[in-house]
Structures are given as structure tokens and as C-alpha cells.
């Protein structure tokens, strides 16, 4: 036992030497890496940080929403999801370009594993509504997914321009803002909008303006079907189609 202790205290000189001489990286001992930075590094890094925050917010929203086994587009569900989204977004300092990047990130499973159209649309709308910029341009032409619910509750003083097509429930509950869609929109566009303007350059789907309380919808192409409109105006190729007698809800023409 005593011997063992002694052995521990006095290192084997040969072993010591082996440790000292067997540094396979010895010749790089004095190498000092002088990293050169250009502003691009900073910009890219901060963009990454913001994107991570946005992604995190979305993931948290999904966690909350996952409690509902089936995500149904219902008034309460949407309001609740929007409130959760608002909570996370308020903490992030982002720009309009970050929103566009997030839209594309949604299509990359490496970056965002789950794309659930409802909450994703709500989250993007919240991002747009809380963005610093008054005018937001989202160049989404090459996006394979048509985002639903985009423009939800777009407030007065905001202009959201979307290049490309959007999905169902575009511009629902619009609150005075201006939503321009350079392509097509699907069903339930402008449903429940209270004021503001929706401009769709191409065609629009069924139930357009369902329970619409005010504002205007301009369609450059064809309106596939109108919903039960309470108040507001719908134009098809500069022609007023609501209020008017020619159209009935969900009539195909």
C-alpha cells in the first residue's frame, strides 16, 4: 500500500517524457489565428439569431396548439393561437425580410420540422402585424406551399404585399390594413374583415367576404363565389359585384 502511494507521488519519468513529446499538434503551438471580420459576418450572424428566435416562437406556438388534437379553423382557435403568437413575437426585434425568410424556412424540414398550415399562417400574420415597417413585401412566388390565413387582422396603416399565391382564409378579420396579393387566393378570402382593402391580382376562391363587416375587396381576375356578406364592397375586374343583385352566395359562375 505504501509502495503504491509512493508510486503515485513520483511520476514515471519515462511516462512524463512520453506525454510531453507526444503532442501531435506541437508544431501548431504558436499559431495564432487572426480572424478577419467583414460586416457581412455580423449581418448574417444577427439574421441567424433572429431566425432562431422566430423559429423558437413558432415551435412554442405549435407546442401549445398541439394540445388540440385537431386544429380547426374556428373563431376561438384562431384568436387563441394569435394571442400565443403575439406573446412570443413581441419579444423579437425583426424586420420584414426575416418574415420572408421564415416563410421559406417553413418549407425546409431541416430548419423547421413541422409545417402546420393554420398556426403557421397565424404566426406569419402576427409577424406582419407587429413588424416595424409600414410596408411589408413578401416575395413568395417560388414557395410551394400556399400560406393560409395570411393578413389576419392586418391593422390600419400597414400594407402587406405578397408576391405569389396564398391559401384559404387570406386577409380574414382585416382591421383596416391593405393586403395586396400578386397571384391567386383561395376560399374564404376576407372573411370577417372589418375594414381596409384586399387586392387580389388574379383569381379568388369561394365564400369570398363571408361575414365581412366592412372594407373592400378588389379582384383582378375572377371571383369564384361570394360568401354571406354583411357589409363592404367586392369588385371583380373594376366592376362592383357586391352590393349587387347578380350574385348569390357560393354561386359558381
Amino acid at each position: 500500500m505504501k509502495n503504491a502511494c509512493l508510486k503515485k507521488k513520483t511520476p514515471n519519468p519515462l511516462q512524463q517524457e512520453v506525454h510531453d513529446t507526444l503532442n501531435p499538434f506541437e508544431e501548431f503551438k504558436t499559431f495564432q489565428f487572426r480572424k478577419t471580420e467583414i460586416p457581412l459576418d455580423q449581418i448574417v450572424q444577427s439574421t441567424e439569431v433572429i431566425m432562431d428566435q422566430i423559429r423558437l416562437g413558432y415551435e412554442r406556438l405549435l407546442e401549445e396548439e398541439a394540445k388540440e388534437l385537431v386544429w380547426m379553423v374556428q373563431y376561438n382557435t384562431i384568436i387563441k393561437a394569435y394571442e400565443v403568437a403575439e406573446k412570443y413575437i413581441k419579444e423579437i426585434d425583426y424586420s420584414a425580410e426575416d418574415i420572408e425568410d421564415f416563410c421559406f424556412a417553413l418549407e425546409s424540414p431541416q430548419k423547421i420540422p413541422y409545417l402546420i398550415p393554420g398556426p403557421a399562417g397565424i404566426y406569419i400574420s402576427a409577424l406582419c402585424n407587429y413588424a416595424k415597417e409600414e410596408e411589408i413585401v413578401l416575395k413568395l412566388s417560388e414557395l410551394k406551399t400556399e400560406i393560409n390565413l395570411i393578413g389576419f387582422r392586418l391593422p390600419k396603416g400597414k400594407r402587406l404585399m405578397v408576391e405569389g399565391d396564398t391559401g384559404d382564409f387570406t386577409g380574414i378579420g382585416l382591421e383596416g390594413g391593405e393586403l395586396v396579393v400578386e397571384g391567386n387566393t383561395k376560399n374564404w378570402t376576407g372573411a370577417g374583415m372589418r375594414g381596409g382593402k384586399i387586392l387580389v391580382k388574379k383569381n379568388i376562391g369561394l365564400h369570398t367576404g363571408e361575414w365581412m363587416m366592412g372594407g373592400e375587396i378588389y379582384v383582378g381576375g375572377r371571383v369564384r363565389g361570394l360568401g354571406n356578406i354583411v357589409e363592404g364592397k367586392v369588385y371583380e375586374r373594376d366592376k362592383l359585384v357586391y352590393p349587387g343583385k347578380a350574385r348569390y352566395p357560393n354561386l359558381y359562375y
Binding site: 457581412l40 449581418i43 448574417v44 425580410e97 421559406f104
Partner: peptide
């Protein structure tokens, strides 16, 4: 402003 956000030096991200 949009162009400046692109990670030009990251080869793995060149396609996007």
C-alpha cells in the same frame, strides 16, 4: 438590404 442578408460564404447554403 435584402441582398446583404445572404450568407454568401456558406457553401452549403448556396442553392437557397
Amino acid at each position: 438590404r435584402r441582398l446583404a442578408r445572404i450568407p454568401y460564404l456558406d457553401r452549403s447554403r448556396w442553392p437557397e
